[in-house]
Amino acid sequence: MFVLGIETSCDETAVAVYHANRGLIAHTLFSQIATHAEYGGVVPELASRDHIRKLVPLIKTVLAAADLQAKHINGIAYTAGPGLMGSLLVGAATARSLAWAWQIPAIAVHHMEGHLLAPMLEDTPPAFPFVALLISGGHTMLIEVQGIGNYRLLGESLDDAAGEAFDKTAKMLGLDYPGGPKLAELANQGHPRFKFPRPMTDRPGLDFSFSGLKTFTLNALNETGQSPQDKADIAFAFQQAVAETLTIKCRRAIQLTGLKTLVVAGGVSANREIRRQLSAMADSANIKIYFPRPDFCTDNGAMIAYAGGQRLIAGQTQNLEIFARPRWPMEQLPQL
Rank of each mutant, 00 (worst) to 15 (best):
D11R: 02
Q240I: 10
F238C: 03
L29V: 15
F208E: 06
L153P: 15
A220F: 01
Q255C: 12
F296M: 15
K214E: 05
I143C: 08
G174D: 09
T201H: 07
P199C: 03
T215F: 00
L256G: 08
V264H: 05
A270T: 03
G40D: 04
A184E: 09
P329Q: 07
L24W: 03
V62Y: 04
Q189S: 11
R193Q: 05
Q69C: 09
R251L: 08
G225N: 07
A108H: 01
G5A: 11
L88T: 10
F166Y: 15
Q103K: 09
Y39R: 15
A106C: 08
I304P: 15
F323N: 15
L153T: 13
T28Q: 13
G267A: 12
S209Q: 07
A285W: 00
L186W: 03
K195N: 12
R49I: 00
G190M: 02
A132N: 10
M1L: 04
F208M: 05
L262C: 02
D67P: 04
L278V: 09
Q239H: 02
A26P: 13
A165Y: 15
Q277R: 09
A285K: 04
R251S: 15
R251W: 00
L173P: 11
Q103A: 09
G180K: 00
A235L: 01
Q69T: 09
R53G: 03
P292C: 13
G266A: 10
K171V: 05
G179S: 09
L117Y: 08
P334M: 08
N21V: 05
Q335Y: 10
L117A: 11
H191V: 04
I76Y: 04
V90N: 12
M112Y: 06
T217G: 05
N286G: 14
L29E: 07
L46K: 13
L206P: 12
A165H: 07
T61W: 00
Q310W: 01
L154E: 13
S269L: 03
P292Y: 02
A235P: 07
T124W: 08
E144C: 08
G83P: 13
T257I: 01
G40V: 01
I33R: 03
V268S: 02
K214I: 12
G91N: 02
R272Y: 04
Q239E: 14
L29Y: 08
L153H: 11
G91F: 02
V3T: 14
F210I: 12
D123M: 03
A305W: 01
R152C: 06
K171Y: 01
G315F: 01
V109F: 04
T298Y: 04
L4D: 10
R49C: 09
V42L: 06
